[in-house]
Design a protein around this nucleic acid. Structure first.
Length: 339
DNA sequence: CATTTTGA
DNA sequence: TCAAAATGG
């Protein structure tokens, strides 16, 4: 998906408990994508209701968000708005990759192949119905959300800059390029995650990344970090062949600007100036209000059980937890109080 | 993702 | 009893 700066940025492992009272501006699309990708049957089939509508993300949201609230975390979900024109090529390329994966999935599933799951994951896509349903459920749960003018990560980064949120929550590092002072990864995925090739599991813990520390450690400016991202590849350009995070770091330190880097490589990057400008000054808005509310149990129950075939027993149990968690947090006479 | 069922 | 596997929708 986004910019890959793994192994280069200093991360600090934390726990959900340590994020108590913090407001996390969560990249909604990133989260939906993860739920849709992960919550599947062994043959790759996603959870669906009797109308054939995908419900994997609804399961992910109700359980995961309840978990966060139980830890005293205050999530606000930031959805992507209108995709920038710069992203058009990437969107088209991804659609083609997904379509190819979908065909491989159909074939693998028909053949009962073990490969089906991996192709199903690669064919994960988000449609209007999925977005609509996710907002409806968040609303009934009392969780605030907003739609960014453009990229969700950019708006979330802006909200942390402004102090409206403490962290951006995402798996991607893009928000750092957008100037987010702080971000936290692995907040919507936790526990044990399987390593693809081998059958082993590793613990995934939330990780805090501080922009200031990243820049100081790498001894680069934010502009140079953006150039590194562009060299490696972003949502707006494919990146240069064989240039990973380490090579990118060397290149930005060796040369005064991107022009010199590209001259050495004998390559070019389409829309370089526009992409750099987009990361430095993305469209954002102050026109939003973040307000947490009480969950509406009967609305949640009707939406999940009556409309989407969830088990009433399971739903009642999780509603009970959510309600209790919200009441508890609301009682605290601290700055982190719920309302 | 989380819960429930299983089998060593 | 408890980690692994299966199910959930």
């Amino acid at each position: 998906m986004g910019v890959d700066l793994t192994d280069l940025v200093p991360e600090h492992e934390t726990t959900l408990v340590d994020l108590n009272g913090k407001v996390i501006a969560i990249d909604a699309f990133n989260t939906l994508y993860q739920f849709l990708s992960i919550i599947r049957q062994m043959d790759g089939t996603p959870l669906v209701d009797d109308k054939g509508e995908v419900t994997s993300h609804l399961s992910g949201i109700i359980y995961r968000v309840t978990n966060l609230v139980e830890q005293g975390i205050k999530p606000v979900f930031v959805y992507d708005g209108k995709p920038p024109v710069l992203k058009a090529e990437t969107i088209k390329a991804r659609r083609e990759v997904r379509e190819a994966a979908r065909q491989m999935y159909e074939a693998a599933r028909a053949a009962g192949s073990a490969e089906a799951y991996k192709y199903a994951q690669a064919s994960t896509s988000i449609n209007a119905q999925i977005i609509k349903d996710s907002k409806e459920l968040l609303g009934y749960m009392g969780m605030p959300f907003l739609i960014a003018p453009s990229e969700g990560e950019a708006q979330a980064a802006y909200m942390v800059q402004k102090g409206a949120a403490d962290f951006v929550g995402s798996q991607d590092y893009d928000s750092l390029l957008f100037g987010a002072p702080r971000m936290v990864r692995n907040v919507t995925i936790t526990g044990r995650r399987k390593i693809p090739r081998r059958g082993v599991y590793v613990d995934v813990k939330p990780q805090i990344v501080e922009l200031k520390e990243v820049l100081e450690t790498l001894e680069v400016t934010r502009e140079q970090l953006i150039d590194m991202g562009i060299l490696v590849g972003t949502d707006f350009n494919p990146g240069i062949y064989k240039v990973g995070p380490k090579t990118a770091l060397k290149l930005v330190k060796k040369h005064p600007d991107m022009r010199a880097i590209l001259d050495e490589l004998g390559q070019d990057i389409e829309n370089y100036q526009e992409i750099r400008e987009f990361f430095l000054h993305p469209p954002t808005t102050d026109d939003y209000s973040i307000k947490w509310g009480r969950p509406e149990p009967e609305k949640i129950r009707h939406f999940l059980c009556d409309e989407h075939n969830f088990s009433p027993e399971r739903v009642d149990k999780v509603i009970e937890r959510l309600d209790r968690a919200v009441s508890e947090t609301g009682k605290q006479k601290t700055l982190s109080a719920w309302f």
